[in-house]
Design a protein around this nucleic acid. Structure first.
Length: 746
RNA sequence: GGCUGCUUAGCUCAGUUGGUAGAGCAUCCCGUUUACAUCGGGGUGGUCGGGGGUUCAAGUCCCUCAGCGGCCACCA
């Protein structure tokens, strides 16, 4: 053995594990399985330091494998809809192109190529970090099998009346060209202004002057004596000349601004509600690319919101109708992807009625059928569930599962179609003006926009029975609608009820581990959909692990240049050092600062284990006749009792700490025992002892290796192999060796 | 605005049911024919954010104040 541990052999060890079949469980109905589905990494970029936190799952999986449970850790990758398309569009931009240069099929194929390359990289990286995943069961969210399950569940939801289309206010990013759910909107504090506009008999205060062109009412509080007699009268909207009513609305706060609110139903969530309640007109003034449309006076058409704002304010001022401008700080929604302001806008979208699903999930969490750990996330979960809104599941992007509904164009001439024609020009027009060009339209199709109420079919065959000119919806599912079905889908749930053996045996899974930032996006959706589809929870425990920060406690980001490449670390210091550094002394769910110092310290620990083992092997060589005699708990000498008692405590505490997800404590105890109790004290004490110490030394070392193995699998396996050879141990691989029991009887 | 977490040694952080303060790194002294200098022995260093309360006993429970962070949220 070399004087220092070298991580260069780690890849060989991984290969040995994989070849041994240890990652693939044997289904045994007399035993309870232990199952984890890997949160599929996004297949759009190499892994980052956060992915190294899969180590939590590997610890659990290796622990249970050693306990003898049939243990499955199922790998996969996520197509990651908007995230991936966004990344890919950045590549396109670098080439001077954009998504508008391609028909949807071509764009999809390009992104698919890109993703396939990244999937290969991710797989090799996961292996490099030692994750004991069952690669024979690898999945991808756009696999045919997953696709057909997602579609079947959508159809089931339609049949159950849980799917509907509506043209509500949605969070729309005009740059990304798609709607988002509330979760994908980041609220940022913005220093802006309140503009006071004279609307004739009264004045309004607004943060969004540009939307006044779409005002269809002014609302006042009916109890406000200043305005109550104006209710029911009409005013002429400045700049536009349209007549709009003054209405009474309880939610208006008389103390804010002027106490009168301009109502823009198509561009403000609050105003949308007011309009629905009062039967107001909806005038959408922005198109989905963000430009002012033909509903505004000629001179404003084509302006983007910020340009329109300047123009409106200037014109109101010129008209003598701008009373004052006051500094005002408020929260504005921004696109979580591109960072631009979200435009609340009415748009037809597909929705899932969420209440029935949320009720099931809430009950499951309240009854602890799904335990959320650490418990503060349980509180967050329940309070979010309480206020949950219907889920907009459609996204106006290419990269994802295309929603499986089909339209007969001739039945729906008002469908708006964008396509690339034979001359490579983008045409955008209604079907009624395009009929006769079906083949060209279908070939160059980019998007279609079907008005609310458009008749649709849930299968292509059904649609084709009604006519020849059929197009599938171009919206895709929210990526979480797909990944929300990951647990039962990857295990082989089948819509026809003929589920796979895997599903029957491994579902519900044991633990779902992820970072807390996707508790609502993903964990909640999995619980809701899992219960709805299978009648059972998708996992019994949802464990939220820590967030990785840099050594100074700053969030890692490429722009800051403080990211850590986990594979680079593994090459320099060994995957074991990285793994240990991520878990040691970290409180459940808290942030962890990952510095190179910390990794180096753990590299030293790994080396310490290596050298202690070297010492034990040398002692074996010194007393070759003693090394094969078995360790016996019966005749333990006084001088060995101390270390054996501590070892027993360690077995007990490690087992308990892993079972209760206290990995930080478990690893700290292991570190402290091995370095101080075993090496500094006990090993030193054996240096002038005789052959009788050898069985004890071997016993304590091998037991320690077992306890350490879930945390630092490579070095422990590597050392174990030396002993297998020397002592001809019956268990040939540490990965499948048995977890220690307490042995020392006091 | 609602909810939630954090504040412990110079730095990064542990401390699971309350019982005389811990680790790693850094620092200082000593040590190398020794399994390991990616090491060993020893030391310096904290009135556990402030205040109050419960208790025989509080870093640990309760209240309050201050600072920092996170999540959620349609108030013009």
């Amino acid at each position: 053995m070399d004087k220092t541990y070298s991580p260069s052999s780690e890849e060989n060890i991984y290969q040995q594990w994989e070849d041994s079949g240890a990652f693939t469980p044997v289904i045994d109905h007399s035993k309870t399985p232990f199952t984890i589905i890997l949160p599929p990494p996004n297949a759009n970029e190499p892994l980052h330091a956060g992915h190294a936190y899969y180590v939590v799952e590997d610890i659990l999986v290796r622990f249970h494998r050693m306990l003898g449970d049939p243990t499955l850790w199922l790998p996969g990758t996520d197509h990651a809809g908007i995230e991936t398309q966004f990344v890919y569009e950045k590549h396109l931009k670098a080439e001077g192109k954009s998504r508008f240069d391609f028909d949807r099929n071509t764009l999809y194929a390009q992104i698919a190529d890109y993703v396939n390359q990244n999937r290969t990289i991710a797989k090799s990286q996961l292996k490099r970090l030692g994750f004991s995943l069952d690669w024979t069961r690898e999945r991808f969210t756009l696999d045919e099998a997953h696709n057909h399950r997602v579609f079947a569940v959508f159809k089931k939801m339609c049949d159950d009346g849980l799917v509907y289309r509506d043209e509500k206010i949605v969070n729309y990013c005009t740059f990304c060209g798609t709607a988002f759910s509330n979760l994908e909107v980041e609220h940022k504090t913005v220093n802006s202004h309140l503009w006071y506009f004279n609307y004739g008999p009264l004045s309004v205060a607004t943060t969004r002057p540009e939307t006044m062109l779409g005002d269809t009412a002014v609302a006042v509080n009916p109890k406000d004596p200043r305005y109550s007699k104006l209710i029911g009268t009409k005013i002429i909207l400045p700049l536009v000349g349209r007549e709009i009513p003054i209405i009474g609305e309880d939610s208006v706060d008389p103390k804010f601004g002027t106490g009168a609110v301009k109502v823009t139903p198509s561009h403000s969530p609050e105003d949308y509600d007011i309009a629905k309640k009062n039967g107001l007109e909806f005038i959408r003034i922005f198109d989905y690319d963000g430009q002012a449309n033909s509903n505004v006076p000629e001179k404003y058409r084509g302006l983007f919101p910020n340009q329109l704002r300047a123009a409106v304010v200037a014109d109101m001022e010129t008209a003598g109708l701008l009373e004052k401008t006051v500094d005002y700080t408020h929260e504005v929604g921004h696109c979580y992807r591109c960072g631009r302001p979200i435009e609340p806008i009415t748009a037809p979208q597909w929705y899932v009625t969420i209440k029935p699903l949320a009720d099931g999930a809430t009950a499951a969490v309240k009854s602890d059928k799904v335990k959320i750990f650490p418990s503060r996330f349980r509180k967050e979960f329940l309070s979010w569930m309480k206020g949950i809104k219907d889920w907009p599941i459609s996204r106006q992007i290419v990269w994802g599962h295309r929603i499986p509904v089909w339209y007969n164009l001739d039945e729906n001439p008002e469908i708006l179609i964008s396509y690339i024609d034979q001359d490579k020009k983008i045409i955008s027009d209604y079907w009624k003006n395009l009929s006769g060009k079906y083949i060209e339209v279908a070939a160059g199709l980019q998007t279609l926009l079907a008005p609310i109420g458009t008749k649709y079919y849930l299968s292509l065959a059904d649609a084709q029975k009604t006519g020849p000119n059929i197009l599938q919806e171009t919206d895709t599912f929210d990526t979480w609608f797909s990944s929300g079905q990951w647990p039962y889908s990857t295990l082989g749930w089948e819509p026809d009820g003929h589920h796979s053996e895997d599903f029957k045996y491994f579902y519900p899974t044991s633990v779902l581990d992820t970072m807390w930032d996707i508790l609502f996006f993903w964990v909640a959706r999995m619980i809701m959909m899992g219960i709805y589809v299978t009648g059972d929870v998708p996992f019994k425990v949802a464990h939220m692990h820590s967030r990785v920060l840099d050594g100074k406690g700053q969030k890692m980001s490429k722009s800051k240049g403080n990211t850590i490449n986990p594979v680079g670390i593994a090459q320099n210091y060994g995957a074991d050092a990285l793994r240990m550094a991520l878990v040691i002394g970290v409180a459940p769910g808290s942030d962890t600062a990952l510095s190179e110092d910390k990794i180096r310290a753990q590299r030293n620990f790994v080396n310490k284990i290596w050298n202690a083992s070297r010492f034990v092997l040398m002692t074996c060589d010194k007393f070759p006749e003693a090394m094969l005699s078995p360790f016996s708990r019966g005749n333990v000498l006084e001088e060995d009792k101390g270390v054996l008692n501590k070892l027993d405590e360690l077995i007990k505490s490690t087992t308990a700490n892993i079972n209760s997800y206290h990995f930080g404590q478990a690893s700290e105890n292991l570190y402290s025992f091995f370095w101080h109790d075993f090496c500094d004290v006990y090993l030193e004490s054996t240096k002038n002892r005789e052959a009788d110490v050898v069985p004890v030394l071997i016993h304590v070392l091998i037991t320690s290796l077992k306890l350490l193995h879930p945390f630092i699998p490579f070095v422990t396996e590597s050392i174990y192999q030396q002993f297998v050879e020397k002592l001809n141990l019956p268990e040939k691989l540490l990965i499948t060796a048995s977890w220690p029991n307490e042995t020392n009887q006091k």
